[in-house]
Amino acid sequence: MDESGLFFKDTTRKTFHIKGQDCAGGKRSKERITIALCASMTGEKLQPLVIGKCRKPRCFQKLDPKTLPVIYRFNKKAWMTSAIYEEWLKLLNKQMTRQNRKILLFVDNAPSHPALTLSNITVKFFPPNTTSKTQPMDQGIIQTVKLKFRKRQMIHMVKEMERQPDVSGPDLLKQINILDAIYWLSSSWKETEASTIEKCFLKAGFISDTSQELTQELHAESCDDLDDDDIPLAVLKLSMDLFGCEFNELKEIDETLATCDNAEIDWTKPAHDLLSDINEQGETDDESEEEDMILSQFPNNKELLDCVNKIKTFSVHRGCSKLLKNVFQMEELISCLIVQKERQSSITDFFTPRGSV
């Protein structure tokens, strides 16, 4: 298990422009989250942990955070804290207890990782200053996930530039919210192959029964499972325009981002200030965020169903069976939601009570 910071709006450039327009200035966004990924040396993956700054960002609207494809937690700095780590570890221990499994978990010795004694998990800490070599997640797993994330982010930007040609780059970036980031991260993690994870564990020195076969593959290729030929040319170009680097270098743009408070506590401070420093479970006020979230106008049922039919027609026209299958599943879910909404209406909405005429 390991954490990493992730800028989901930062461009690493102070300006960004759309082809054919003058360069538009704008502040670099510092909207960040902390992600924590955990996997076994056989490629089994746990649900990602995402730490944001708000209890329930406005983009969640009526979504229950418990239904998200990640475990979502928050604090003022979007950092891993001892409380979040302890809660996550105890949840994992319950899961292992239900499955009647006992596991060995390796983590770094960060201040946010207190020593705990659990029934089904034995936690081992990597020696100080060795995680760059011994932490499997740092051997290519996190980097692979980030590249897959950036690919989705860049494809989204290309799409939005076509849909909103009159909107400047900084304004398009502001429209990306933490909900987008969560689903992009979840898809990127699911897409990461078990063989990639196994190779990274081997590179870190973890030996398994299949090590000999994987060692030959490891010498022949990198741990990255992202095929360069699968990256659209528009994405390759936009990564240079937007980030000022090659696409494969995007995995490095936030690698030095802090994920926990490494500063020593100044015990000479007044008690009130000490408590404020120690308690990181507060949240930022979503209304006062520097980058205001832009929420689309809520469509009515007719607009929604018309949109589904257009996507269905597009799928058939392009001969994309995979998309068509997903559209039918989406149509079924939308229909169920509409029917459920109608059921909430009172019977008097359809019939006039006797004696009221």
Rank of each mutant, 00 (worst) to 15 (best):
R58I: 10
K269N: 07
L104Y: 09
T268M: 07
S321P: 00
S82K: 06
K30D: 11
K312G: 05
S112V: 01
R101E: 15
N301L: 02
K62R: 13
I231S: 09
L173K: 07
K77F: 09
L172R: 10
F298R: 15
K124T: 10
K14C: 02
K190I: 08
W184D: 12
L238H: 08
H317S: 15
W79N: 03
S345I: 03
D225S: 15
I338H: 06
Q344P: 00
W79V: 02
P69I: 12
Q153G: 10
Q297K: 14
L238P: 06
E3R: 00
L226M: 15
F149Q: 10
P170H: 00
I51L: 05
F126M: 09
T196S: 14
E162N: 11
D229F: 08
D306Q: 12
A78V: 10
D138R: 03
L214N: 15
I253N: 03
D22G: 15
K30V: 08
A110T: 01
C336D: 10
K14I: 02
S188F: 04
D138K: 03
K251C: 06
C223P: 01
Y183D: 11
E289V: 10
N100C: 12
R55E: 14
W267Q: 06
V145W: 03
T15G: 01
D180K: 11
I231Y: 07
E160I: 06
Q340L: 12
P57R: 08
S4Y: 01
I278Y: 01
